[in-house]
Design a protein around this nucleic acid. Structure first.
Lengths: 359, 359
DNA sequence: TTGAAAGCGCTAACAA
DNA sequence: TTGTTAGCGCTTTCAA
């Protein structure tokens, strides 16, 4: 640690550490020049820059982003709000976001909301206090979200990830086409010969995506003249294996005219359901087929590997971030790029081994 | 959005939005008083405070943490570095950290290192530039870590999570006793009748925990007069199911005198290995037993549920954060609490159904 | 209990 | 190409 006091200028000098002022003094240039070496190097002569850099090195100078941010009125921090990281979908998404942000010199501040609107409000307020330049977020229900309304009112730029904004609305979003992809997934079930197909989902009220995927299921059923069945709506988005939960599933799959295939609105749910089915003595896919949604890596590592609708999770994150940065750029004077509002990324059907013809 | 300009003082007033100055003016108090209402309310008279609060509410004032941080020379931001969130261990840990931090009014900045020392250095530098007050981190190998040495040299307070610091060293850490808990786990395997037990691990060089757990395995074996077997060291910490990987495992478990039980140094690995065993036609636990380590929730949701050594993941995170905050407090004048360096949290053995007597 | 004033470290006009 | 200067929004002595 260099802790040597510099000689010239700086009279009483509380001089705590290596600041730009010290560096400038050590290099015998003005504060402004020293600053430019770091923010606009092309404005300063080569050898001057080198002197400054050398001085900075010797003093162990590390730019204090706080000063820069305060002055520049932009923090280059992006706030990220995701429901939870314990569902790998969002952990994968975070990877995409982090990668993209750091590559562009942006910093991140992450909060998780647990699908809870109250928490969402609180966390967003917290991000706002940090004066994040913008946000990437996944909310429980984009159509009726207090936080999005607030953000809109305050003019804070944000991009939704996973939530699929209305195609003619004003909101930016990056997602797959939930309805269409779910429909495609269910169609493979129908193609395999299933007629009695049911949806297993987390709480619909807490997830617009679950509802959209359910709609896709209905589309597929109706398109084939099949009767949609009542869904099994679980309290949480990830399974818990409580006796009550197990019993509900037992009743659901052993009733007369029970479904021969289950479409689970996310992979974690599908994985949990499959293990419960196994405990109940039902073999997947021989006795009952299971289709997931999300495409988390884990699904492919199980045996049998989960058949599922794959979203490009880390790409959703990266693209959402890129879209946000583009918006921020566009807000700068001179730029006027019109960005597409809703980005729909392609989904893929992963053929695992959890779907077979009905018994 | 209130955008009204205030009348008195503030001559040319670029007046962009609701700042403390505006609030103070609107409440007819000085800037200092207005500030105190938010940071030291006990120093200001009740009714004055109320006037300020009312003005703040009307103007839609939101404290700019940047200004506060810059001036106060502490950011109340804690940097967090974890290897990845795609292993649920760390996602669960993050939950504990986030909960604890927000409860104490601290903010977080998360980066992930992918077990890569180069990335570790880069990410740490980034956190340092943000002037985080301290860090909670999990490094690949605490004993030989360039970043920890750097942090020590610079006097940045940090607390390790999962990495178990040497008990008489100077570093703070929160973890379970990796060696002892691994030993206890392997002992259950021995108690079940196994004699040929092998370790399956991620790259040892990249994880001190994997090495410690391996040492615990050796302890258990030797304590029972058994010969430790050579471990199967996988390139990554989570499985990938490439053909080469599957083939290595096949050779490992079908060789003459192959192990009858596998101790995997983390749960993700255990889960991946089990599915590969299944594909190879081996039944768990009838043909071969599997013991995991970590206790991620997912393990209990599989069928058969994974038998594993459970760490209190979210508590590790919460305690690491609490320990860090205590250190920060201790650094303040007047405090002199001596904190324990290494916190060892108790582990639990979760009896799943992946361990049975050898065939 | 309140106010006046001096910065925290940096950037960005503007001038030289 | 470089320097001078005025703050960004806030906290915190010191005095009143």
């Amino acid at each position: 640690m260099t802790r040597k006091a510099v000689s010239p200028a700086v009279p009483p000098a509380p001089a705590n550490s290596a600041t730009l002022v010290n560096v400038a003094a050590a290099a015998s240039v003005s504060l402004a020049t020293a600053s430019r070496v770091f923010s606009n190097p092309e404005l300063v002569r080569q050898d001057t820059a080198e002197r400054v850099l050398r001085a900075a090195g010797e003093l162990g100078f590390r730019p204090n982003l706080l000063g820069a941010k305060l002055r520049a009125q932009r923090t280059r921090i992006i706030g990220v709000m995701l429901p939870t990281l314990e569902n790998a979908v969002f952990a994968e998404c975070w990877r995409g976001i982090e990668e993209a942000a750091l590559a562009q010199g942006y910093s991140l501040m992450l909060v998780t909301s647990r699908y809870d609107p109250d928490r969402e409000r609180e966390r967003i307020e917290y991000l706002l206090r940090h004066r994040v330049d913008g946000m990437v977020l996944t909310v429980a229900d984009a159509a009726r979200s207090a936080v999005l309304d607030q953000l809109d009112a305050e003019g804070v730029p944000y991009v939704l990830a996973y939530n699929q904004a209305a195609s003619r609305g004003k909101r930016y979003s990056v997602s797959v086409d939930n309805r269409l992809s779910a429909r495609a997934g269910v169609q493979t079930l129908i193609a395999a010969g299933h007629r009695r197909i049911a949806v297993v989902s987390g709480a619909f009220v807490a997830s617009d995506r679950a509802r959209q995927r359910h709609a896709g299921y209905q589309d597929a059923m109706r398109a084939h003249g099949l009767q949609p069945m009542p869904p099994l709506s679980m309290p949480a988005h990830t399974p818990t294996h409580t006796p009550a939960e197990i019993e509900r599933i037992r009743l659901f799959v052993t009733a007369p005219r029970a479904p021969t295939a289950l479409f689970c609105t996310n992979d974690m749910l599908a994985i949990g359901v499959m293990s419960i089915l196994k405990r109940l003595g039902l073999a997947v896919p021989d006795d009952i087929s299971v289709l997931g949604y999300d495409g988390i890596a884990l699904g492919g590592l199980l045996e049998p590997p989960l058949t599922t609708v794959v979203q490009p999770n880390s790409e959703i994150g990266a693209r959402a971030l890129a879209c946000l940065l583009a918006r921020l750029d566009a807000a700068l004077p001179g730029r006027a790029a019109t960005l597409p509002r809703t980005t729909l990324l392609p989904h893929v059907l992963r053929a695992g081994a959890t779907v077979a013809p009905p018994p």
